[in-house]
Design a protein around this nucleic acid. Structure first.
Length: 626
DNA sequence: CTAGGGTTAG
């Protein structure tokens, strides 16, 4: 509260020797600072006392302070007295509400404006539509639509576009199309809205067709389309489109950078990611938190934790997203203690953790076997931070317990969950059963999985592996037969490696690559040295019904091996090799890559479906905790 | 005073 308000409040009978506030003081100190109609009235009283013109008050502030209170008519009076355009003042206020974190305030205010007969214009409508869009409130939207007709704004392109956007966002597809079809004029904004609309519905192909045929494209159109590809699992297409955009001499902005970096993260395309990073710095995007967060994520997903740390340290502002990304990055790289330390630092920095932060924290615990800590953090998240655990958090707990060999406890935990367990939960338990060789529980898990997620080949494969490792070949064969019966096919293993901006992909068993011979040669040479160091091929991971020698042959053509050989051939001595795999790394490849990292004295980073394995000097960062 | 892209997990 200001000193001025205090002096009034504390002395109902102002003493004569007290200096009267001059209009200047009112203007400088108070016009922006009053926070309630009560304070406003006190100031107004002074204005009257000192015979000052009311226009000295900052009217949009007067409006927003009184808008939703019983003092609305009072504010109106002041505004009318000031001789300003009332509609413009309320519009400013509406805009502020619409852009705030509670856009429903704008809708309340709009209702009041109608109630009191305030004159509405097209700006008024546009702001209240913005609020409806933010809230996906198409019920209010329809009312506003009515106002547009009543007030004769039907042909205002801004409002038409806003309406189409609202209908699109709130899922009223038919209404959106009807409006779109009726529009006499359309501009690039209209087309961009339609692109977003299709991309939302997962219809990237149609979106792209529209993108190609629309009469005009600007940076936002390109960015939306690039983002559309990324969001729909087509990062390669996203990057291809980005190079086309560069060819058009259009300048990428912050959002474009975010989209392309996300594509790089998905593809593990570190070289392009670095280029975009340079471009971003040169363009002055360094202060943009979202750009920095996406950069962080890109470096983490490319296995460059050190680069991520530098970005993180240099950030001017860090949000909960930055901290969570970093915690997760450390966690999946087997640096759990550091992840937990970072969490403490985050709390010290007064940043409130959210549900995602705790996914990272629990990952850190489960990947390090820190059962006690994991339990404590799980309890703490709802107790200390009011975050209700979601299925992902339960999944982390099942993972934590079952990795640590506490399978029965994991089973009990699932029984006591407050949410119905999904396939991921049972699948996690199944994974634990494999590591700790518990066939009985595995069979229980698979029963649930056959019900919940029968099309997912991964679960059959794990169960079959469990049987194979226990030398129960008939059971293993039975599982594979079951897969066949249900028409479930094993997803082929596939690994990729990015070199000079080109992503090279290797599918297990592939012998068609132009460098196949060189890859084979390199492998054979390494194999000799590996055998000397004790490597024995582990064919139990091969689930095909083939001869042992064929199994070995296939094992040696696992995609991650091929990709790493390719990397060794095509990069400088000593350069790290980064490979991404679509499934989990198999045990045999894991053992082989440990040895290879030692023999060739290189760092080999493999990002698999679950985490990173950083092989260096014969050991892996996962410390055998998968 | 108007309309259309963006970050962490799964």
């Amino acid at each position: 509260m200001s000193k001025y308000t205090l002096s009034i409040a504390s002395s109902p009978f102002p003493q004569t020797h007290q200096t009267k506030p001059t209009p200047q003081i009112i203007q400088n100190d108070l016009q922006h600072t009053f926070k309630s109609p009560f304070e406003l009235k006190q100031i107004h009283a002074q204005i009257i006392k000192t015979n000052t013109h009311p226009s000295i008050l900052h009217l949009p502030h007067v409006a927003s302070v009184c808008a939703l209170t019983p003092c609305f008519p009072y504010a109106r009076k002041i505004i009318l007295l000031s001789g300003n355009n009332e509609t413009a003042i309320w519009n400013t206020c509406l805009k502020q509400f619409a852009e705030s974190s509670s856009p429903d305030d704008a809708i309340c205010l709009f209702n009041r404006l109608c109630e009191y007969g305030v004159c509405l214009d097209d700006f008024t409508i546009s702001f209240v539509l913005k609020a409806c869009t933010k809230l996906s409130d198409c019920l209010s939207g329809r009312v506003i639509h009515g106002f547009i007709e009543k007030l004769g704004f039907q042909s205002n392109l801004y409002l038409q576009n806003s309406l189409v956007h609202l209908y699109v966002v709130s899922g009223e597809v038919d209404n959106a199309h009807q409006l779109f079809d009726k529009m006499r004029d359309r501009d690039v904004v209209t087309w961009n809205i339609m692109i977003k609309h299709l991309v939302k519905r997962g219809n990237v192909d149609d979106a792209y067709r529209l993108f190609v045929t629309m009469p005009e494209r600007n940076v936002r159109s390109w960015t939306s389309m690039i983002m559309g590809f990324v969001k729909n699992g087509k990062p390669k297409e996203a990057i291809e489109l980005f190079s086309k955009m560069e060819g058009e001499k259009l300048c990428p902005n912050e959002v474009t950078v975010v989209a392309v970096l996300a594509a790089c993260a998905d593809l593990c395309a570190l070289d392009l990611g670095k280029k975009i990073h340079d471009f971003s710095n040169r363009s002055g995007f360094k202060t943009n938190v979202r750009v920095c967060n996406t950069l962080l994520d890109m470096y983490i997903k490319c296995g460059c934790l050190e680069a991520a740390c530098i970005v993180f340290d240099e950030m001017e502002q860090r949000t909960v997203v930055s901290w969570s990304a970093m915690i997760q990055g450390l966690a999946i790289n087997g640096r759990g203690e550091e992840a937990l330390r970072l969490f403490s630092k985050m709390i010290q920095s007064q940043i409130k953790p959210n549900e995602v932060t705790f996914v990272g924290i629990l990952h850190a615990c489960s990947h390090m076997g820190m059962v006690h800590e994991g339990r404590e953090y799980f309890a703490s998240m709802s107790r200390d931070y009011g975050i209700v655990p979601e299925i992902e958090h339960y999944g982390c707990m099942v993972d934590l317990l079952s990795r640590a060999g506490l399978l029965k406890e994991a089973r009990e935990f699932i029984k006591n969950m407050h949410i119905k367990p999904n396939g991921v939960i049972w699948g996690t338990l199944l994974g634990g059963c494999r590591v700790h060789k518990n066939i009985e529980l595995a069979e229980e898990a698979i029963k649930h999985l056959l019900e919940l997620d029968p099309r997912n080949d991964g679960y059959y494969v794990v169960l079959s592996n469990i049987y194979a490792e226990a030398k129960r070949w008939e059971d293993a064969a039975r599982v594979r037969k079951l897969m066949k019966q249900k028409g479930v096919k094993k997803t082929p293993g596939s690994s990729s490696i990015s070199l000079d901006g080109v992503v090279h992909e290797f599918v297990a068993g592939d012998e068609t690559h132009p460098q196949t011979e060189a890859i084979q040669e390199r492998w054979d040479t390494l194999l000799e040295e590996m055998r000397l160091r004790g490597y024995v091929p582990n064919t139990s991971v091969v689930l095909l019904d083939i001869e042992e020698s064929e199994k070995v042959r296939f094992l040696f053509r696992h995609s991650e091996k091929l990709a790493v050989m390719f990397g060794l051939i095509n990069t400088a001595n000593g350069a790290p090799i980064r490979v991404m795999k679509n499934l989990r790394v198999c045990e045999d490849c894991h053992a082989a890559l440990k040895l290879i990292s030692e023999i060739v004295d290189r760092e080999i980073v493999v990002r698999d479906r679950n985490r990173f394995h950083c092989f260096k000097n014969g050991v892996c960062s996962c410390k055998e905790f998968w």
